[in-house]
Design a protein around this nucleic acid. Structure first.
Length: 159
DNA sequence: GCCAACGTTGGC
DNA sequence: GCCAACGTTGGC
């Protein structure tokens, strides 16, 4: 199993939204590197750190998992979509995506600030490198586990 | 709202 | 194929 980090602006689509809908087609990625990670790297069952970007407290808000193999993003063919790509055709789609399913919502976000505070333990972790704008990135298993260890303990554990 | 970082576009 | 201009991301 591999591990990933995917960013979403919570005003657009948050971990709460994912919990509500269960599974969401991850449309709209229009960056080749991010596409390649989804197309070539992701397998159903892979775990995803669900990251809230462009918000008051950016950070990892929960866990999701890859729920499909990659398939063409239908929004690229839709002239009325914000994500329409006139150069994409059904014969030769340009943009691929996966479905993403809810796994867990953290009681509190593991903030970017906290993650940065242990950056010395997270060498080569793309998120904490300056200027990173990728919305989909691979996460090493040890980094995934280290970030989960920052998760707050549930106040009323039902497990 | 500012602006640094950086990917993309298009003229040459 | 270079690179300036432009657009977007995303932290602050």
């Amino acid at each position: 199993m591999r591990y990933w980090l995917m960013k979403s602006e919570p005003d657009e689509f948050s971990i709460h939204d994912l919990e509500r809908v269960g599974t969401e087609p991850w449309t709209g990625v229009r960056n080749y590197q991010a596409r390649n990670f989804m197309r070539d790297g992701m397998k159903p069952g892979d775990r995803i750190l669900f990251y809230h970007s462009n918000t008051k407290v950016p950070g990892v808000a929960g866990i999701a998992e890859v729920a499909s193999t990659a398939y063409p993003d239908p929004t690229q063919f839709d002239p009325r979509s914000d994500y329409h790509d006139p150069k994409a055709t059904r014969e030769e789609p340009r943009w691929m995506m996966v479905d993403v399913s809810f796994v867990e919502k953290f009681d509190d976000v593991v903030s970017l600030e906290e993650i940065k505070s242990i950056a010395d333990e997270l060498d080569e972790f793309a998120l904490v490198r300056r200027g990173n704008r990728l919305s989909v990135m691979p996460v090493a298993e040890r980094h995934y586990k280290r970030i989960l260890a920052l998760k707050p303990k549930s106040k009323r554990s039902k497990r």
